[in-house]
Computed example of a mutant assay.
Amino acid sequence: MDTTDRPPAPARAPGLPHVWAGLALSCHPGPAAAVTVLVAALAVASGPGTGRQVLVTAAVLTGQLSVGWCNDAYDALRDAEAGRRGKPVARGASDPGTVWAAAFAALALCVVLSIACGAAAGAAHLTGVVAAWAYNLRLKETPLSWLPYAIGFGSLPCLVALSLPGGPWPAWWAVAGGALLGVAAHLGDVLPDIEADLRAGVRGLPQRLGAARTRLLLPLPLAGATAVLVLGPPGAPGGPAVAVLGGVAVCAVVVTTVCAGPRRGGIWRKGALAGTVLVASADVALLLARGTGVA
C-alpha cells in the first residue's frame, strides 16, 4: 500500500491516562450512552427484577462499546485521509491495536451478559450486535447499509421483553418502532459525512441518495416510528400522546431542514443525529408515561 501521500499522524502522548481518554472518545460515547440509557429505562419500566435490569443494561452497554470501537479501529485509515480530527485513532491519539483489543473484549463481555439475560433474549441481542459489526466491516458500503441499523435497534425491545420471566414475545409495534428509529439514526449519522464518504468510495444507501434526498427522507422514519409507538399499543391514545406525535413531526422537520442544512458545521454538524435521539427519547418517555410495556 502506498503511504507516501498520507499525512503523518501526530505523535501519541504516552501514559495510561491518554490510553483511557482515547478509548473513551473512540467508542462513540454520545450514541452509546443514549442507546444504553433508553434501553435501561425500558428495562426498568417493563417489570421488577433489579438483577435482570442490570444485566440488560450491561449487555447493551458492552455491545455498544464493541461496535463503536470496531468502527473507529476499522475506519482509522479512511478517517485519517478524510481529515476527521475528531477520531482519536485517525489522528494518532490512540493505537489501533489497543482499540481493536477493547472492541473484542467488549464483544466477549457482551456475549456473556446477553446469554445471562436468557437464551432467547441473548440470541436476539447478539443478532443486533453482529449486524452492527457487519455494517462496520462491509455493509456500510452497500445499498443495504440501513439494514443493520434496523436489525440492531429492533433487537433492543426483543432483549427487554424476552428477558422477562416466561420470555414473552415483544410487541410488534415495539420492534417496528425500534427498527424505524434505527433507520433514522443511520440517515442522521451519515448525513453530514456524505460528501467525504463518496470521495472515499463509500456508497451506502444515504450516499447513493445524496445529501439533499437523505435530508428529505429522514423525517419519514422518525415520524413513522412515533406513529407506531403512539398508535400501536392497545387502547386509544390520549391527548398527550397525540400532542407528542404532532410535536415529533415538527421536530423531525426542523432537525432535517434547519439543523442539518447542507452548510451547517460546528455544533450543528450532528444536528440530525441529535434530533433523532431527542425523538427517540420522547417516544420512550411517552411509553413510560402511559405505563406501556414492550411485551
Rank of each mutant, 00 (worst) to 15 (best):
V112D: 05
Q53R: 09
G122S: 06
T256G: 14
G291F: 08
G49L: 04
A185R: 02
G246V: 10
G265I: 09
L139A: 07
V39F: 06
V248K: 13
L181M: 13
G201R: 03
A121F: 03
A90F: 07
A121E: 05
S145M: 05
G204A: 09
V99K: 06
W268V: 00
A161Q: 10
A225E: 02
G97R: 14
A40T: 12
I267N: 00
R213K: 09
A76W: 01
V248Q: 12
V254P: 05
S26D: 11
L113K: 07
G210V: 09
G128V: 02
V248P: 11
C117Y: 02
A176R: 07
A289S: 15
T57W: 07
R264P: 00
T256Q: 12
D2F: 09
P262H: 02
A124E: 07
A243W: 15
L65H: 06
L113V: 04
R52E: 03
L137F: 15
R12H: 03
L209K: 11
T57D: 08
G247L: 14
W69M: 11
M1P: 11
S66E: 08
V111H: 01
V175F: 10
E81T: 11
G275V: 11
G275T: 13
L245V: 08
V39S: 03
V60Q: 06
C110L: 04
A252L: 10
P143D: 13
D5S: 09
L109P: 00
A59C: 10
P165W: 01
Y149P: 01
P96R: 08
L231C: 09
V254M: 05
V244P: 00
A45L: 02
G97Q: 05
L217D: 03
P168E: 12
V54I: 15
L126F: 07
L205S: 08
A241W: 01
A132P: 00
W172Y: 03
F153S: 09
T62A: 15
G15F: 05
L187F: 14
G204M: 07
A252I: 06
G68Q: 04
Q207W: 01
D75T: 10
L198E: 15
G154R: 00
L38P: 05
S26E: 12
K140C: 05
G167V: 01
S114Q: 02
D95S: 12
P8Q: 14
A241Y: 00
R208A: 06
T214A: 12
S114T: 01
A45H: 12
A225V: 04
A134L: 15
D5K: 02
T50L: 13
D5Y: 01
G15Q: 04
C259V: 04
V294I: 13
L25N: 11
W169G: 02
G204R: 07
A13Y: 00
A184H: 00
L147G: 05
W133I: 07
G22C: 10
V228M: 04
G63K: 10
A43H: 00
T214M: 03
G177N: 08
A102K: 03
R263Y: 06
A225F: 04
Q64S: 11
A105K: 01
W172K: 02
